[in-house]
């Protein structure tokens, strides 16, 4: 199994704060890897560093054999990464359609692919010409995910998609991620809710204080409650 994305000893500073202290991991191709860790562990910073939204101060980031840590964000995105940020960042002044038109960088919207997306998220079809700013939180999350997959991408970086959403919507998202993975996409997904994480993940990384403190199979961690307790503590319970 080859690795699509590798981080080697990545350090990131935000202003004068040292946030990532040598992050090391590899994301195997065609799998879903969960990135867990308590609040402030550095998960979002890790995704932003991969996207080039924060500059890595040292270390290497490799995507499909190509070094990307010094590249500009648009060039990194053009290598085939879709990004769903923690804030969702839908363009609220644009309609649902316009959000997706922009996300389809390489040409007009593909009808078949749109139908595939509407299959997961019928609400997007319903509100196709509505301002995205008027959507509910869950619908914005769907739009943000749809934007990342509106064209085929190699790798998706998804930051806490289920945060604050109702169980029914979370169920829809879980199905959607499974389907995306079946289509051959590699996913790196930040998730605080362990129940959700164990339903989605093949592999798992746990972060603390800007370092990876555990890496392994999701199934193994799911069975080992002691290890869960040690790595994730009470912070995950609080999210359930």
């Amino acid at each position: 199994m080859t690795d699509l994305l590798t981080l080697t000893n990545v350090h990131t500073h935000i202003g004068r704060y040292h946030i990532l202290h040598g992050v090391d991991f590899a994301i195997p191709e065609h799998q879903t890897t969960m990135l867990l860790g308590r609040n402030g562990a550095g998960k979002t910073t890790t995704l932003r560093t991969i996207m080039g939204l924060w500059a890595a101060s040292s270390g290497q980031i490799t995507l499909a054999g190509q070094r990307i840590e010094a590249m500009a964000t648009p060039d990194i995105a053009r290598l085939g990464i879709g990004y769903v940020p923690e804030s969702m960042a839908v363009f609220s002044d644009l309609t649902v359609k316009e959000n997706l038109v922009l996300a389809a960088r390489d040409g007009p919207l593909d009808d078949n692919r749109l139908e595939w997306i509407f299959g997961f998220f019928p609400a997007l079809k319903r509100f196709w010409l509505s301002r995205a700013g008027g959507l509910s939180g869950g619908q914005k999350q769907m739009l943000s995910i749809a934007r990342a997959i509106v064209e085929p991408r190699k790798l998706l970086l998804i930051d806490e998609p289920t945060k604050g959403l109702a169980p029914a919507i979370i169920g829809a998202l879980i199905e959607c991620f499974a389907e995306i993975k079946r289509s051959g996409v590699t996913i790196l997904l930040v998730e605080q809710n362990f129940h959700v994480a164990q339903r989605i993940g093949d592999a798992v990384l746990v972060m603390d204080n800007g370092r990876i403190v555990h890496r392994g199979a999701m199934a193994a961690l799911a069975e080992d409650t002691l290890l869960q307790e040690r790595l994730l503590g009470l912070s995950l319970e609080a999210h359930q």
């Binding site: 960042a89 363009f91 316009e98």
Partner: peptide, 24 residues
């Protein structure tokens, strides 16, 4: 126009426009 959409989107959130692969 798509350029216009990009400008409006960029005014709201230029980081996200870049993360979609556009050189703002």
């Amino acid at each position: 126009s798509k350029i216009g959409l990009l400008i409006r989107a960029g005014v709201e959130n230029r980081e996200m426009v870049e993360a979609l692969g556009y050189r703002i």
